[in-house]
Design a protein around this nucleic acid. Structure first.
Lengths: 334, 334
DNA sequence: CTGAAAGCGCTTACAG
DNA sequence: CTGAAAGCGCTTACAG
């Protein structure tokens, strides 16, 4: 089926009885247009079903109207974690409302390919969103010098302070999770943390440590894992080996907590009677598993990230850091 | 940090001592160029670190250099299934080698938003990849009439025959899985299938049914589920209620099989002694769980999908259907 | 094999 | 408030 040539701005202008310039002005919301012209142009757009040509617009405005969604994780982890699902959903929703297009860029953690670098720096996108970050990602950390970038989660390292990002207060949230275990009378509380080269890994562990220190309890039972189901299971196993007398554990993500729960279950250890478990995220599987967890507004974080970038792209003054609220959700596991 | 203006084709031409037209020709691989000119232009490109402006190129060639990756699933399911992770990885790898950009389009199953429709039909992309398909997706099924489209998995419905797609022989593979259970001496074999509005749901069930019919066994123990972990658990539960005497079960995806396994385990039913389980996909978690399964080359499927679309975009004659091989992988569960 | 020139569809000073 | 015109950076008949 041959499609008829798409109507152009010229067609709209002719139909509306104005010049191309005026038509362009109403489309771009410039104020200096008479109500009559504006109405005529809108009518023409509707009847012709006009859609601006993105390439022409990009060329004239010298912008690309594209935003890179950079994922410095292998696809296994990216796709396996409900947290990312929610964040990306939030981002995609907001970007879809705009004229921008989301261009997906996977890259190995801490080692963006030459192609990715060339793409991001070669003028192919107007801005970028980085949804995960490891401390070795020096390129990504410095990316903000070259174009508008918003990070999901505070970037580690020297660039951290200079970056735009949205996050939750992971230290405080880790403290709340741990305090809940303490309040339940648990005294030997371990932790399966995230990777210690990621802010969410480091900070949640710091919160756990601080809460224990505040009551004079030891914080020597920490095993770092990798935010995956399997990693959580392994971490729990190692923790049990090192500290068979545990009666509580804070696991830094729900996905890992699910892994931990399966280990506990397979060993006949009762939850929460023998060991109470608190997770992090409040992702859908957590609800099903009856997991007590710290809720973070993942989807809203995604929306906020996208909103900030859109603001930067519009040239608005944007608050550098947005910290959203978390909330302890008590269910069966602790 | 102010970035210096990017070099343009004009700059390259001047540096190489040729016209813009000639420079353009070598960049686009046109044959009618002298070796001298070609060498000079390449040298200029290298020293200037020239990268063509995508918008200008798009405008002149009247193509967008963008490909839509359409995902008619909610993000939960898309992100939760390792199968998608692999397929998308394959797609992303191949597209990254090209000049095309992948633009992500989520849409509700069977109900693409007006925005998505407008985007896909509004000349914003040169082609599309649809990675999941439900029978209600009439819009997507007909999308191929408007622009080049390749489907991951045979589209259901009248458009099926007219579409480009890559798939495995799900009927045959379902048969192999079931035959393996029969060969192991199982006689009461149930199935947890995928949704019956999806080809992979229907076809794998058909293979199971045929294999049972071939030996005169009943095929009345089928529960359709939704390709999720939870769905698999629910399906297994229902299957056990309906047929407590089962000694084998074919589960249409590894993710669902994992859910089934957890139900079995929690009821003290031994696998494979009491009930043998065969999954589908051979995704990473299957390996860890010791799941016997049917391997499908998910990543290669993604690469093939992308390769076909690129071929179509180049105007090449492309084989409409590519069916890749599957393989039974025997581990502990059956 | 090569260049001058037109054209892709927009935006935006500039002048009025 | 509005239009004529230049320009964004490429590609591609056309003529040679």
């Amino acid at each position: 089926v041959e499609r008829t040539a798409a109507p152009t701005l010229e067609d709209v202008a002719v139909a509306a009885g104005v010049s191309r310039a005026t038509a362009s002005r109403v489309i771009n919301g410039s104020r200096r247009v008479s109500p009559d012209a504006e109405a005529a142009v809108h009518a023409a757009i509707d009847t012709l079903r006009y859609v601006p040509n993105r390439a022409a617009r990009s060329l004239a405005k010298r912008t690309t109207m594209a935003i890179a969604l950079v994922v410095p994780e292998n696809t296994e982890r990216f796709f396996g974690d409900p947290y990312f699902a929610q964040v990306v959903q939030g981002i995609a929703d907001v970007i879809a409302e705009s004229d921008y297009v989301l261009s997906l860029q996977f890259s190995a953690p801490s080692a963006p390919s030459a192609k990715t670098v060339r793409y991001l720096l070669g003028g192919n996108v107007d801005g970028a969103i980085v949804v995960s970050h490891h401390s070795g990602d020096h390129f990504l950390a410095g990316l903000g010098d070259a174009l508008p970038v918003v990070f999901g989660g505070r970037p580690l390292g020297e660039h951290g302070d200079a970056s735009y990002y949205v996050d939750v207060d992971n230290v405080a949230a880790g403290g709340v999770a741990t305090q809940h275990l303490l309040d339940a009378g648990r005294t030997r509380i371990g932790m399966v943390s995230g990777p210690l080269d990621m802010p969410a890994g480091v900070d949640r562990a710091a919160g756990w440590r601080a809460a224990l220190a505040a009551v004079g309890a030891a914080s020597d039972a920490l095993v770092p894992a990798d935010f995956t189901l399997t990693g959580g299971a392994r971490g729990m196993t190692e923790l049990l080996e090192r500290r068979p007398d545990l009666d509580g554990v804070f696991v830094a993500s729900d996905l890992m907590a699910l892994g931990a729960l399966s280990v506990l279950r397979s060993r006949g250890i009762r939850v929460p009677e023998d060991i109470a478990v608190v997770g992090f995220d409040d992702s859908p599987p957590a609800l099903e598993a009856g997991l007590t967890t710290v809720r973070q507004p993942s989807r809203e974080m995604g929306e906020t990230i996208a909103g900030m970038l859109l603001g930067l792209l519009r040239g608005e003054a944007v608050q550098k850091v947005r910290v959203l609220d978390t909330e302890l959700v008590v269910r069966d596991s602790a």
